[in-house]
Amino acid sequence: MADSNPERINFRDVQFLTSAPTLDECPEDSGAEVAFAGRSNAGKSSAINALTGNKKLARTSKTPGRTQLINFFRISDQQRLVDLPGYGYAKVARSMKDEWQRHLAFYLEHRECLRGLVLLMDIRQPLKEFDQQMLTWAVSGGLPAHILLTKADKLKNGPANNTRFAVEKALREQGLDTGVSVQIFSSTKKTGLDKLERKLGEWLALEESPPEAD
């Protein structure tokens, strides 16, 4: 069970580590990682930049879907954030999109240091096919997932909360609610930022090594 009061992580010190076109070129599979994934218009880069307080850390683009690499960001020697390739609007061949999906699936299923998946969805367009596919991979693999319903500043509080309730209900009905949590989020207004930080802190908490026997 995760520590209810994990050591608070300073996400303001996060730095770019490396980009990997394939899993073979990812950093060593050790420590703790949390991956961010979402369709190309979900505001993934904006959320990472809001979390870290660095508007230039994760590139934002007016042409969604340009991120084709797995980008790693260093929190500490044993803690990382991972920006997975966006999917949905990229003007690339179907074969390239299929290749991205294979990399995503392999990463989610085989990366042993992966502690959780943050799945971003535009609050006005939640639970699209890609979102459900990612959740299916996570739930079937026993990987905790946390849904960020982004761009919540585009809606008033009532409709935003109604969407969250509707998403939670849909997940229960589809059997995709095991280990999955949902929150409202806005990168622009920093809505839900503290809650996201707490969730990441739980997942990224490093286990202390047991004392050596005398």
Rank of each mutant, 00 (worst) to 15 (best):
F106T: 14
K56C: 01
D153M: 08
R59S: 04
G158I: 14
A138D: 04
T22P: 14
L200F: 05
R111A: 08
K151D: 03
Q183A: 02
D177Y: 03
S209W: 11
G88Y: 01
L143Q: 10
W100H: 13
A93P: 07
R74L: 07
L23K: 06
V118Y: 01
Q132T: 04
K169W: 02
A105K: 15
W137H: 14
P27M: 10
G31H: 08
Q15N: 08
S186K: 05
A93V: 09
S30D: 13
N54I: 06
D83L: 08
D24T: 13
V14G: 05
L143H: 11
S209E: 14
N161D: 12
Q101T: 08
P6F: 07
G31Y: 12
A20Y: 08
Q133W: 14
F36K: 03
P27C: 06
N71I: 03
L51E: 07
D122F: 04
N41A: 00
A32Y: 03
S76T: 14
Q15Y: 02
A58R: 04
L155M: 09
E33P: 07
P210S: 03
M134H: 07
R124E: 08
Q174I: 04
R80P: 11
H103S: 14
T163E: 01
R59N: 02
Q79G: 09
E28D: 14
K156W: 07
A35V: 06
V118D: 01
S187D: 06
I147W: 00
E168F: 05
I75W: 00
K56W: 01
L51A: 00
R66E: 03
E7D: 11
F130P: 06
Q79V: 02
T63P: 09
V14K: 08
L135S: 05
H146L: 01
L81P: 11
G65P: 09
A20C: 04
L104M: 15
A166E: 01
N161R: 15
